[in-house]
Design a protein around this nucleic acid. Structure first.
Length: 1031
RNA sequence: GGGCGAUUAGCUCAGUUGGUUAGAGCGCCUCUCUGAUAAGGAGGAGGUCCCAGGUUCGAAUCCUGGAUCGCCCA
């Protein structure tokens, strides 16, 4: 096999560019799908991003996790079609265009023209398409972007219409008047999952308002004042009712300085009135005693009669608590879910004096035209002036804001279209139950909780750029849902090329029931419904490719950030359940947030965004991927720093690369003759098999973290043990060593292919793994594993570690050979150490290993109870058992147990038999020996150094000095040299005594001893002159 | 206010069904090795396993309460 020049300092980013080019030239991605045609499908759904912003590091995170499992499954023999997708509709897009065009409201948009506006939206969603495509390719995310689905395509919209009609036909779509979170700036209602994204901690003014009781009622006397509390002062303007909890106890209280007695919940008297002055409780009574009491509204704008009989009275309501406030809640019917239910329950009219732009209408007198939030201050002033204000205090709480434009939301009763998901709650829960979540706690935690409390899906948006709600209505109020473009054409005679607004708005047809003209309702739908429909809409099913859709349903795997729990994950489950009675995916991997290195959320305003290109240019895509896969479990989120990526390069990728470079440096061009496979060869191959098995098992469980770490552990063993221990065999061209190393590296390149596809493929190519790419190879099978060999090597390496530790403590450097290491070991341990005695001797640089069966020669044993073994057996008596064991004659017991015998202990008058597994033996070192111990296993060193050992050390020092000289001279590692030495006579004497050894080590074909020139070095204070000549 | 998750060395993270001396990597210090590797090896410094109770012979691990952080929701 030909040697291939490998630069140990290869730049990975540069290498990746070459690999990318090779993939393009050989069409590897397409081939990886072609070659699996007809094989079982592994189905991946791409959660579509919107390309109206530059992709960031969090997109890299999502995209590499979307990549790793499809690559793995392809190698496992599955056909993995990877259709890309783009989300193109929705408020985020509109907001961006509004900003670019300087539009400030819906009125502005309509003045600008819906057609032109939507055209801008259409273009805007692909503004950064090139950036997305470039980054996607560069990070090695294999996805088919040429055939990507786009939610704006007429076919896609048509599939969404079809889905809506199915749901419509089940009677699950209705128009309701509900209190919805409403953004006055965007002029639209928000779905609960959108509201969820916009909570912010803000300080509002909370007010305590006194409302005078109009007439005697039960315990109340006319003129008494009900104290209500609200964090939204403007809601006092349209106040219609006061709610109390009939179960709570209320108090009528005289407060110093107050003109009339006040009424608050008894439990809150101290908190509300504590610092108001002296307080005297005049009487207490249940909330039910207050029900029906009439009071005078604080503002006159909406008359009691307008709300109807029963307005401006006290009503009982279970939602009132004594947790905060006063226990009396002011209720403005249109502005809260509880308020609405209470008002409607009381038979009052729903009066909403707030316009869609968030300002009061003409009914509110001087407040007309004023933004509701801006009215707060004036309301407080007027209440105060009228003597109705008890107190106004700042109040910090978490309040929902519009997730795109940050405007505080208003809760607001308005007509809106809904999907009645609450009616299929049980099916939704069953669908969720069938999903394997990673991490698992999402199922019954976040998602389960969400579904448990599921409310109807607010489907409609009073906006422009989205899938139009396909509901037409006539003047008599009949409605008709259109399920396809063809149906629309049949009814209207219009063949729409573009189903978006405004074109679709112009299409009308006679009502099938009354023949009056039907017009489409003005709304578009929630963009999340688009993405939830992607399982079929991406194929334009059921209008075409029905077969393909069925083959690709459900997905085996989807992956997005955790915030999609109530976003795409929910819309997938909901749409899937409504149409097919199941979730459209089986495994979901959730990804956490990426924080900066200080643990702060990345944001443009803080300027702590990590640009993906910077990381890629500096370290490469493999490094970026490796960091995301292996640094931690992805759902816990990342505390990102470039240095952490660099560490992965240094400790893993470079280590791997240098092992590969080492092979290419030394691999002989021809066979060096027959040699034997060694124990080390069999050991590393067993390690390899174990690693293949583990990585396979972990990846099958969608666990990139621990599979990646298993590969890293193997590569470390390969580099730092197998290769290091076998260097001599590599220098001499032992074919088994090369064969073994090649096998390991090729298999590693396969295991690594899903993780770091670039470097993996380069190794495969360089080692001639076969075919056009590692990505076209079949996933390796785990081979035979010699467990005994693995265990023996572990013991041998422990022994080395202990020996090195003893050497470190002895302060005798490793180049100084020592006579013997005394090893305490018996049975299987001793056999293992003998098996690898040569390795151990070399590592420790000792002439011989001597075994002693017991510790007697090196120290004494101490005996301890093995709690894990004895605990379950003795329970409460453990302390006595432990004491009894420690009181035994340890040396004697050690001998008995070593021979497989048992010993008896007496605990609380009863005899118990103990075996070797019930106790642990620990060495206690004797003075004068350098002993390292671990359990019953120990290594001691004989520190005596005679002249021979010292000479040998000097010879090794000479070797090292000559190697240094070779390196300084810039020779290649295989260059042969003529060596001349001179200097101190004693030193030269030692060197002469080991001439053969020295010559062999430094590849000298000749050695001369009377050198007067050359570089001078000092060894143990003695002078040595060296000159080296390449021959 | 509720739900979910997190909290272990200066930093990033492991820690099996509870088992008695809590680990790794990075960084720092000392030493060492080097015929691939800004690599490797040995040692050192560095810990109230967030706090407080409880269960248990035994708790980083299980339970309860609390704190802090994050996410989600009222």
């Amino acid at each position: 096999m030909a040697r291939r020049a490998v630069d140990p300092n290869q730049s990975f980013p540069a290498l990746e560019q070459e690999v990318l080019q090779r993939w393009r030239d050989r069409d590897v991605f397409a081939e990886s799908m072609r070659m699996r045609e007809g094989r079982p499908e592994f189905v991946f759904y791409e959660g579509p991003p919107t390309a109206n912003g530059k992709p960031g590091s969090h997109h890299v995170l999502a995209r590499v996790f979307k990549d790793i499992f499809p690559r793995y499954k392809t190698m496992r023999g599955y056909h993995v079609a990877r259709k890309g997708g783009w989300d193109t509709h929705g408020l985020p897009v509109e907001i961006q265009v509004e900003k670019a065009l300087g539009l400030k409201s819906k009125t502005d948009i309509e003045a600008y023209g819906i057609e032109a506006f939507n055209q801008q939206c259409r273009e805007s969603v692909f503004t950064y398409l090139e950036d997305w495509n470039a980054l996607t390719e560069r990070i090695g995310f294999w996805v088919d972007l040429d055939d990507a689905y786009r939610t704006l395509d007429p076919g896609y919209v048509e599939s969404v219409w079809w889905a809506l009609k199915q749901i419509w036909n089940k009677g699950l779509i209705y128009e309701g008047h509900k209190v919805v979170p409403y953004c006055p700036r965007c002029g639209t209602a928000l779905a609960s999952h959108e509201v969820a994204q916009g909570y912010k901690d803000v300080v509002d003014t909370s007010v305590y308002v006194k409302l005078a009781v109009a007439g005697d009622h039960g315990p109340l006397v006319a003129g008494d004042e009900l104290v209500i509390w609200t964090t939204l002062p403007w809601t006092v303007l349209p106040n219609a009712l006061v709610a109390v909890n009939p179960e709570l106890t209320y108090a009528r209280v005289r407060v110093e300085g107050q003109p009339a007695p006040l009424v608050v919940a008894e439990a809150l008297v101290e908190r509300v009135l504590g610092d108001a002055g002296r307080v005297e409780i005049l009487g207490t009574f249940p909330g039910s005693a207050l029900e029906g009491a009439a009071y005078a509204p604080a503002f006159p704008y909406i008359a009691t009669a307008d709300y109807g009989a029963g307005a401006h009275t006290v009503r009982g309501a279970a939602f009132v608590s004594a947790e905060d406030g006063t226990g009396l809640v002011g209720t403005a019917i249109a502005f809260g879910e509880d308020d609405y239910a209470l008002g409607v329950g009381a038979g009052l009219a729903v009066i909403n004096p707030v316009l869609p732009d968030g300002t009061f209408d003409e009914r509110m007198g001087p407040y007309a035209g004023m933004d509701v939030r801006a009215a707060d201050g004036r309301v407080v002033e007027e209440l105060d002036a009228a003597g109705r204000l008890l107190r106004a205090t700042p109040y910090e709480h978490s309040f929902p804001h519009c997730w795109r434009c940050s405007t505080p939301l208003v809760y607001y009763a308005k007509p809106s279209w809904y999907i009645e998901t609450s009616r299929v709650r049980e099916q939704l829960k069953a669908s969720n139950e069938a999903i394997a979540w990673h991490p698992p706690h999402i199922k019954h935690g976040r998602m389960g909780d969400w579904l448990e409390n599921n409310v109807d899906w607010a489907l409609s948006r009073e906006r422009y750029w989205g899938t139009p709600l396909p509901v037409w209505r006539c003047e008599d109020g009949h409605t008709h849902c259109i399920g396809s473009l063809e149906e629309l054409e049949e009814l209207s005679g219009v063949a729409l090329e573009d189903p978006h607004r405004p074109y679709v708005d112009d299409v009308g047809f006679p009502c099938p029931q009354c023949a009056q003209r039907m017009q489409r309702v003005p709304e578009v739908i929630d963009v999340w419904f688009d993405s939830g429909a992607m399982p079929f809409a991406q194929h334009h099913a059921p209008f075409e490719a029905e077969e393909r859709f069925k083959r690709m349903f459900p997905a085996d795997f989807v992956c997005e950030a955790l915030d999609q729990t109530r976003g795409w994950f929910y819309s997938l489950i909901a749409v899937g359940t409504l149409l097919f009675d199941r979730a459209p995916m089986e495994h979901v991997v959730c990804l956490g947030l990426i924080l900066d290195e200080n643990g702060e959320k990345m944001s443009k305003s803080k300027g702590n965004i990590v640009e993906p290109w910077g990381v890629i240019d500096r370290f490469g895509a493999d490094a970026f991927r490796w960091y995301f896969f292996t640094s931690k479990q992805p759902w816990d989120g990342y505390r990102f720093s470039e240095e952490a990526v660099g560490e992965g390069v240094r400790l893993f990728l470079k280590q791997l690369w240098n092992t590969y470079a080492f092979l290419q440096t030394y691999e002989p061009s021809q066979d060096a003759g027959a040699c034997e496979q060694s124990e080390l060869d069999r050991w590393i191959l067993s390690r390899l098999s174990g690693t293949v098995a583990e990585v396979t098992e972990r990846l099958d469980d969608y666990d990139a973290t621990f599979s990646g770490r298993a590969i890293a552990a193997f590569v470390d063993d390969l580099s730092n043990w197998y290769v290091r221990r076998n260097r001599r065999r590599f220098w001499t061209g032992d074919p088994h060593a090369f064969e073994t190393l090649r096998t390991c590296l090729l298999t590693v390149s396969q295991l690594l292919a899903p993780f770091t596809p670039f470097v993996a493929d380069e190794l495969w190519e360089g080692l001639e793994g076969g075919g056009a790419s590692v990505h076209l190879s079949d996933w390796p099978e785990a081979g035979e594993r010699d467990e005994a060999l693995l265990a023996d090597m572990a013991i041998a390496r422990d022994t080395v570690r202990m020996g090195l530790s003893a050497r470190g403590a002895s302060k005798i450097k490793l180049r100084q050979p020592l006579g013997e290491a005394v090893v305490v070991a018996a049975g299987a341990e001793r056999a293992a150490i003998e098996r690898f005695s040569e390795v151990i001797r070399e590592e420790l640089n000792v002439k011989a290993l001597r075994f002693v069966a017991g510790a007697e020669e090196l120290g004494s044993y101490a005996l301890k109870a093995n709690y894990r073994a004895l605990g379950p057996r003795f329970g409460k008596a453990m302390p006595q058992v432990a004491a009894a064991i420690e009181a035994l004659d340890a040396q004697h017991v050690a001998v008995v147990l070593r021979d497989g015998g048992t010993v008896g202990v007496n605990v609380e008058g009863r005899e118990h038999e103990l075996t070797g597994a019930d106790v642990t033996l620990q060495m206690q070192p004797l003075d004068g020996y350098q002993v390292e111990r671990e359990g019953a296993h120990a290594v001691a060193l004989d520190l005596a150094i005679d002249d021979g050992l010292r000479e040998e050390m000097l010879a090794r020092e000479v070797v090292r000095a000559v190697q240094g000289a070779r390196k300084d001279a810039g020779f290649d590692v295989s260059d042969r040299i003529a060596l001349e030495l001179g200097g101190d006579a004693a030193l030269l004497g030692a060197a002469r005594a080991h001439e053969g050894f020295i010559a062999g080590e430094v590849l000298a074909v000749s050695v001369a001893w009377d050198n007067a020139r050359g570089s001078e070095v000092r060894i143990e204070g003695l002078e040595l002159r060296i000159s080296v000549t390449r021959v």
